[in-house]
């Protein structure tokens, strides 16, 4: 099997996700007020971390493209953005499912939720932008610039709960989470990270192949 390293990473991530979710669902205790609803935290928080991490990677590969002009950075920009947007959509759905029984509403325009929605929409727009530009170099440069500008929202999402009043709670720390709940959270965080790496690597290969095809067509023309 070719490209075994990424499949190994992905499968490892899936196994971790099963272990972490099993612990989260069956081993860890329920929350004293929220009961079993809080168990969604074991996927929601890791998804949030990995989403912000993936967009951080997009930020750096965008800078790398602008400085180096090597195609691998553009392909990583494309694959990272796509995986990040999918994760971001998952994040919003998970949060919404948790919010209805806890807050009483599916959605509200609080700073954390609004800035996260903006983040997903901004990078979704960058994906759309990619499809509008035919010239590969122009496309890579413009989407890299757009990604660097859109990335400004990532620290805003992270600090939104500290800077402004919000409905969303501030970040938890091991001090505010029972020890029995920390372990499944950590396992799932690594699980999501490995799965994201797997997806990005797979998507990267598609992006490289498409780029190669485009180059061939451009040369033939």
């Amino acid at each position: 099997m070719k490209n075994q390293w990424e499949h190994a990473v992905g499968l490892f991530g899936l196994v971790l996700l099963m272990i972490g979710s099993y612990q989260g669902l069956f081993v860890a205790p329920p929350d004293r007020f929220m009961g079993d609803v809080m168990r969604i935290m074991y996927v929601h928080v890791p998804t949030a971390w990995v989403t912000l991490l993936v967009f951080t990677m997009v930020f750096f590969v965008s800078i790398a493209w602008l400085i180096r002009g090597t195609w691998r950075w553009d392909a990583l920009q494309e694959s990272g953005t796509e995986v990040g947007v999918v994760l971001g959509c998952l994040l919003l759905c998970q949060g919404s499912i948790w919010a209805r029984p806890t807050w009483g509403v599916w959605w509200d325009w609080d700073p954390r939720l609004t800035t996260t929605a903006v983040l997903v929409l901004a990078f979704g727009a960058i994906l759309a932008l990619r499809t509008f530009i035919d010239d590969p170099k122009r496309r890579a440069t413009l989407t890299a610039v757009a990604s660097i500008v859109a990335y400004v929202d990532v620290p805003i999402v992270y600090f939104s709960v500290r800077w402004w009043r919000s409905l969303h709670q501030v970040q938890s720390s091991p001090n505010t989470v029972d020890g029995s709940m920390v372990t499944p959270l950590r396992i799932n965080a690594f699980a999501m990270l490995f799965i994201a790496i797997w997806f990005i690597a797979r998507r990267y290969r598609i992006a490289r192949q498409r780029l190669a095809e485009e180059m061939k067509e451009l040369e033939a023309a």
Binding site: G104, Q171, T176
Partner: peptide
């Protein structure tokens, strides 16, 4: 017309007879 409950960042296991 619309009520929302704010949850803090604490996640705790229930203990017998505990009060927040």
């Amino acid at each position: 017309k619309r009520m929302m409950v704010k949850h803090d960042n604490e996640y705790r296991a229930p203990t017998d007879g505990s009060t927040p």
